[in-house]
Amino acid sequence: MFSIKRRFVLSAGAAIAAASLMSLPAMAQTTTIKISHQFPGGTMEQGDFRDRLTRMFAAEVEKRTKGSLKFEIYPGSSLMKTNAQFSAMRKGALDMSLVPLSYAGGEVPETNIGLMPGLVTSYEQGAKWKDAEVGKELSRILNEKGVVIVSWIWQAGGMASRGKPIVEPTDAKGLKVRGGSREMDMILKEAGSAVVTLPSNEIYAGMQTGAMDAALTSSTSLISFRLEEVSKALTTGRGKSYWFMLEPLMMSKAAFDRLSKDQQAAVMAVGAEMEAFALKAAKADDVQVANVYQKAGAQVVDLNDATVKRWQDIARTTAWKDFAGKNENCSKLLKLAEKTL
């Protein structure tokens, strides 16, 4: 009799304990989020600002969620290949990534608007997108595709060259050039270039071997991937550029939806706060890249309004027209983006 009563008490106690654990709020449970990106790893204080941003973001979200969210960061495409990241987020196989949006253009045509030549020509204009109609529509489309934008990050870019500076469209004729997106490649083709398609972390090898003569990429990548070692000239993106890239910190919607409301709020709040850091760092790199290349002995030149307009005029009749004809979403996005010009 005693044994039966004792077993009953123990069983009841175990059931109560289990019920108590199940009733704990989601914030009390620990979830580990993996963040992947293609850029060199560093620390919160030093290195490529995009890697620093992911580390700062992770530390602050962990703090605000009292440790219920923890993060593992995989720089240098160490978790998965660069071009696989967006697709993996859509499928829920990757939690987060900071990746050029246009890299997903083959899978989701609408994302090519993130590197549309001449559509964004200043940081101030790019900053308008998030709260403008174009940003809301792009967010809606990405949500439907299974991805959430956490931080809106814009970067100006320039062109490193193994030979002469490439400033005017005529300068690109006959050269093998990496543009960075399908649409950027279109204006290069119109200018007479042979285009080379590969992610930014593979540019160094391409230029070193002569597989390409020049490459357009962000100021930060021009520095982080040490392209000054294989370049004799640089056309900068400081001040003016027809190459502005949307490179957001994104999260798989499947991973986002698994979080509690408080965790979601922390992720989005910290993501928004990181945008000021990204803007300041991107602008600083636009200046720093010129110093790095000058020190390496490269010829450094800047763009002016007239030159940017000549590239933009080519873009209107080639890349913009082609993009608008892709589907109804693309057409609508382009019209909304033009409102910010």
Rank of each mutant, 00 (worst) to 15 (best):
R7H: 06
F8W: 10
V9Y: 09
S11W: 12
G13K: 08
G13S: 09
A15E: 08
I16L: 12
A18M: 10
A19T: 14
A19E: 06
S20Y: 14
M22R: 12
M22S: 11
L24E: 04
L24H: 02
L24P: 04
A26V: 14
A26H: 00
A28F: 11
Q29M: 05
T30N: 07
T32S: 01
T32R: 05
H37K: 12
F39E: 02
F39D: 06
F39H: 08
P40K: 09
G47R: 05
F49P: 15
T54G: 06
F57W: 04
K66Y: 08
K70Q: 11
F71G: 10
I73V: 14
S77R: 03
S78C: 01
T82F: 02
N83V: 15
Q85G: 01
R90I: 08
R90Y: 02
R90C: 13
K91Q: 15
G92K: 03
D95M: 04
D95H: 13
M96P: 11
S97N: 11
Y103A: 05
A104N: 01
P109I: 09
T111M: 07
N112Y: 06
G114W: 06
G118S: 07
Y123N: 10
Y123Q: 14
G126W: 00
K128S: 10
K128W: 06
K130T: 10
V134Y: 00
K136M: 03
L138F: 14
S139Q: 13
R140C: 00
I141P: 07
L142Y: 04
N143A: 02
E144I: 07
V147H: 04
V147L: 02
W152R: 08
I153W: 11
G157C: 04
G158P: 13
G158H: 10
G163L: 06
I166W: 00
P169V: 08
D171C: 03
D171V: 02
L175G: 01
R178N: 13
G179Y: 07
R182T: 13
D185L: 12
M186G: 03
A194S: 15
V196D: 06
V196R: 15
S200C: 09
N201G: 00
I203E: 03
G206R: 10
Q208Y: 11
A211Y: 05
A211T: 09
D213E: 12
A215M: 04
A215E: 07
A215P: 14
A215N: 11
T217K: 05
S218H: 00
T220I: 13
R226K: 15
L227M: 14
E228D: 14
V230P: 12
V230N: 04
S231Q: 02
S231H: 03
W243G: 06
L246C: 09
E247R: 11
E247G: 12
P248D: 10
M251C: 11
S252L: 05
F256Q: 08
R258S: 12
S260N: 05
Q263G: 15
A265M: 13
V270S: 00
V270A: 00
A276W: 01
F277A: 08
A278V: 07
L279C: 04
A282P: 09
K283Y: 01
D285C: 08
D286A: 03
D286K: 14
A290K: 15
V292F: 13
Q294V: 06
G297T: 12
A298W: 04
A298P: 13
D302N: 15
L303F: 11
K309W: 00
R310K: 15
W311F: 08
D313G: 08
T317M: 06
A319H: 00
K321S: 15
S331P: 07
K332G: 01
L334P: 14
L336G: 06
L336N: 10
L341G: 09
